[in-house]
Amino acid sequence: MRRFLLIICSFALPLMVAGIAVEVALRHLPNDYAYKSRWLADHAESVEVLVLGSSHGLSSIRPDLMTLRTFNAAHVSQTLAFDRHILEQVIQCDDSLRWVVLPMSYFSLVEEMKDNIEWWREKNYCIYYGYPSHPLNPLYHSEVIGAPKIKDDIINLVRYWTEGTTLRDTDSLGYRHRNPATSDYDWASDGHARAMLHTRQVGTSTIQRNRSHVEHIADLCRQHGVQLLLVTTPAHRAYTSCLDNSQLNEVTQFCLSLAETNSHIRYLNLLNDPRFNNADFHDADHLDDEGAAKLTAIIDSLTVAL
């Protein structure tokens, strides 16, 4: 038995040493999760408008164009559970917070990270935001084991050491810049593909859980005297024409009913807003910088007016 354990340990030791070294290096590699989490910890008390949400929030609202001090805490594929967790952390130490902007997309109520193809992103919330999930499972607490591809991690590290390229994709206020779509962009097929990707047949429990996250966010905002703005961001007609009506109605009706019954909640449905045209889109469901500037102006006028 002793011989067996000795052989296994001597085999595993180099692997563990290498693993720990890569883990430490990866955690020192600048990325958006680490940056935003640190920024919020350092500056939370000064934020007046907090933007949450998925890529629909990340590349739609430009804090630099807002009148009130704004920070964009959205991340790609961020679901409502993580929006709630981030808000819970920020609202405790931010007395100046006046608005929370929460994008409510077509897929918001049917999407959970555990069912998402990008489920591995959950580890970023566990590592950098202290999200209390799967406390003992290294898949959710280690960059090396939880990464989707170790090869990509190694490449990222080498690029960081040799070229200084980081994993930061957003500006200092958390917004991700996007170029306009190219002139030959195939709106129809992209719109259809994205709509299909976002259309889900899920059980009522998923919808119920997501509803309760929004309701909890609404309660938190009410308790702290913060206004909650629910926004369905603009999308290209090629995308909106392929959406499932019942899934879409589920979101819009839920937001409308929340806004009707709560004085501190507003709902802005800009999904088919005619003010946005081809030049405003990066792809079928994401705005480019110009489109984001337009949307930011709309939100800014609302937040300043109230």
């Binding site: 489920w119 591995w120 898949l139 090396v144 084991i145 989707p148 591809k149 170790i150 090869k151």
Partner: peptide
Amino acid sequence: LLLLQYGGR
């Protein structure tokens, strides 16, 4: 290494 690369959930 291949297990780390391709393995996951």
